[in-house]
Design a protein around this nucleic acid. Structure first.
Lengths: 186, 186
DNA sequence: GGTGATTTTTGACAAATGTCAAAAAGCGAA
DNA sequence: TTCGCTTTTTGACATTTGTCAAAAATCACC
């Protein structure tokens, strides 16, 4: 399982722990356009993406604004809702047919209790996600629309083929028209 | 010690753990304008603010851009540098005379090893900081300069008295002139 | 392969914010 | 109190990006 491989890069996973993880990790396949978490609904699951592409988006003045994309070997959840148990401000949808691993919040808390060494995994993963978010924050604050697009293009070129321009534009914090113009002039 | 109080809100702290924390937590007093971490230098310390105000800032085209403010009962560090051990992209300075608790990265790692339950504290604190950063990210992406200012004003009015307008403006992602105009029209 | 829906591009114009320069206000030290 | 330095405000103008509408291109499905 890709998830176990991924986690074992952080700490070594004992056979018992491996068994426990296997027992709480539910492998699910969802088809393109499936809504994994609905806006205003509590998000009690963490998803690990074994294959496919998922995005989280907000509604702002009736329009969908992409908050993040997650692909193979990344986690996806409404972080805010998962942690606080408040309704999710964002909707999560599969942009492609996906093979996911689903872990419930309750099972994860049990895992933390039973295997305290997994707290370490949780901490390190959260730290890394924090750093990624910080980088994105700085990007949006300091860089022009064009620079952000070029940055995305160099770091994640395949995304441009897999998501629509409108989805990518709002992810970059610009309108679709602006993105279209940026592309035209390059 | 305020730090212990703060941590005990997350998990209960045993007497042994308390002793250990006391032994690695160095209380320091720094005066206004002290640079705690220099840009391009590795940041190997975590600071907990018992009293005072600290800010982290970047240089962008020669100008200082405030990345964050931290005050009483908050942690301050160059998160990126602390976690990755790379040189810090940001400078950290005390904006007021401060009473801080300093914990080194090495000591913290030892603490995590000796007292695995502290991993939980680390995870939860990181999660909360993640949520705060996400909120700020959405704020800057969705809200106008004026809304961001009003938001800050309502959530943290004292900051306006304690930091300069220039520092606050760049924190809000706008220029000082724009902030000045926003204030004038209210 | 054709057709209706969806996505992307283009145009004209508007709004928000930035830049540069200078004036005004505030503040600390002698 | 005054002088010099720093911070804040104001003015004129430029730039970036957004908005709304329509045309063009692309895609999915029959």
């Amino acid at each position: 399982m890709l998830l176990l491989q991924h986690l074992s890069q952080i700490i070594s996973i004992s056979k018992t722990l491996e068994g426990e993880i296997n027992s709480i990790a539910k492998e699910i396949n969802v088809s393109k356009n499936t809504i994994l978490v609905n806006h205003k609904e509590r998000c009690r699951n963490l998803f690990f993406i074994q294959k496919g592409l998922v995005r989280g988006y907000y509604y702002d003045e009736g329009k969908e604004i992409t908050n993040w994309f997650a692909q193979q070997e990344e986690f996806a959840t409404s972080f805010y809702s998962f942690i606080t148990n408040e309704p999710s401000p964002e909707t999560i949808e599969a942009l492609e047919d996906c093979q996911l691993i689903q872990i419930s919040h309750a099972d994860l808390q049990d895992l933390y209790k039973k295997f305290p060494e997994t707290e370490r995994i949780g901490r390190i993963i959260t730290e890394n996600y924090y750093i990624k978010l910080e980088e994105r924050f700085l990007n949006i604050q300091f860089r022009s629309a064009k620079e952000r697009y070029q940055n995305l293009l160099s770091k994640n070129p395949s995304l441009l083929q897999r998501a629509s321009l409108g989805q990518i534009a709002t992810y970059l914090g610009i309108t679709q028209e602006t993105l279209s113009r940026i592309r035209a002039e390059l």
